[in-house]
């Protein structure tokens, strides 16, 4: 059996703040902003949620979906730019909480919004090399945007977990390719509370160049065309960029639209392309081919091609659907949002 996804799970906090409410705070025109970024609202973590808790809950959903014993996981990687500790891995808390310790390896990864797919690549490599039977790759973030900054409209929270193996995959891996350069479009210095970004520079030389180049590299490697794909999930920093990337690649927007969770949960950073991929899997039928392309500022993109197997139907009833988390929502006003995100200095 080929290497692929044995099971997956997501977790999205249930609080939301709308673009309209954030715009009210900063005297912006919410209709113009919402239309410009194609985002209506974003997910906000509860006061007791962080990257570790979201990762654990996503991992538990993935375990239930895969049906495998956590003791068989031999590698856990958590990609995030909002790990709770500067020194002490999130991955060990996840491993302990799901019962995967101690005979396993674990590490935290960072590469802006593509650290989760970097983890997927590492687990695929270990499984393909027959070093491990199963591994878990997670992308999670509780993103912070500076109050009043454009990023505040999109910086959301969520996580996605993928169990990789070669026993009974719901989608097999056809191939993967990456495109990486030193492009300073978005950064956060050590100790800085909020990230900085280079405005429009985050578009053309950054998101689009890397996303499109990684996609084209993968297509060449596998001798495929964009028409060969039924479903696509690009990284979604907003709801506009993935559709623009699709247009550049001559991909019909219908193939991308089902992945656009960003419209209702915001940009979940390391989780964004993976949550979109999870939603495509929720809707996929056996035989369909899915393209997943992440993008992480700094900058790089990882592209993957998957083919959905008959096994997806056997595990369907065990999946907690992405839409179940999207529809579970409670709105916050800006004051409560500020409290949730620790924007008040209390000491």
């Amino acid at each position: 059996m080929s290497v692929g996804i044995e099971g997956y799970g997501v977790y999205i906090p249930y609080f939301r703040i709308t673009v309209k409410e954030i715009a009210r705070m900063w005297n912006d025109d919410h209709k113009t902003i919402s239309k410009g970024i194609n985002v209506i609202e974003k997910a906000v973590p509860d006061m007791d949620e962080d990257t570790a808790t979201i990762s654990v809950n996503a991992a538990r959903n993935a375990l239930n979906h895969s049906g495998i014993d956590p003791k068989n996981l031999e590698a856990i990687y958590v990609g995030s730019e909002s790990h709770p500790y500067a020194v002490k891995p999130t991955a060990v808390t996840v491993a302990e909480a799901i019962g995967a310790t101690p005979y396993m390896t674990a590490a935290d990864l960072e590469f802006a919004c593509k650290a989760g797919t970097a983890g997927m690549q590492m687990v695929f490599g270990l499984v393909k090399a027959n070093e491990i039977k199963y591994g878990l790759a997670i992308g999670t973030d509780c993103a912070q945007g500076r109050p009043g900054d454009a990023l505040e409209y999109t910086a959301g929270a969520g996580g996605a977990a993928f169990i990789i193996g070669n026993e009974a995959p719901i989608a097999t891996l056809e191939g993967m390719a990456s495109f990486t350069t030193d492009t300073p479009d978005f950064w956060r210095r050590e100790g800085a509370r909020y990230p900085s970004h280079a405005g429009r520079f985050t578009g053309e030389p950054s998101y689009f160049r890397h996303t499109i180049s990684a996609t084209e590299r993968l297509l060449n490697k596998l001798n495929l065309n964009v028409e060969d794909f039924d479903r696509i999930s690009f990284h979604q920093p907003n709801g506009r960029f993935p559709l623009s990337a699709a247009k550049i690649l001559n991909i019909p927007r219908e193939k991308v639209e089902d992945s656009l969770c960003v419209v209702k949960v915001g940009n979940t950073y390391s989780a964004a392309s993976m949550v979109g991929f999870a939603r495509q899997l929720d809707l996929a039928k056996p035989g369909e081919r899915i393209l997943l392309v992440s993008y992480g500022s700094g900058a790089g993109s990882d592209a993957f091609s998957f083919v959905v197997t008959d096994e997806i139907e056997n595990k369907r009833d065990r999946a907690v659907l992405v839409d179940q988390y999207i529809s579970r929502r409670k709105e916050l006003d800006y004051a409560m949002y500020a409290k949730h995100r620790g924007k008040f200095v209390m000491e």
Partner: peptide
């Protein structure tokens, strides 16, 4: 049961996690 932060005594201390 879901997994949440239970307590964070200080900004520099250990974060307690557990079930809620």
């Amino acid at each position: 049961m879901t997994f949440r932060k239970l307590m964070e005594s200080t900004r520099e201390g250990i974060i307690e996690y557990g079930f809620k």
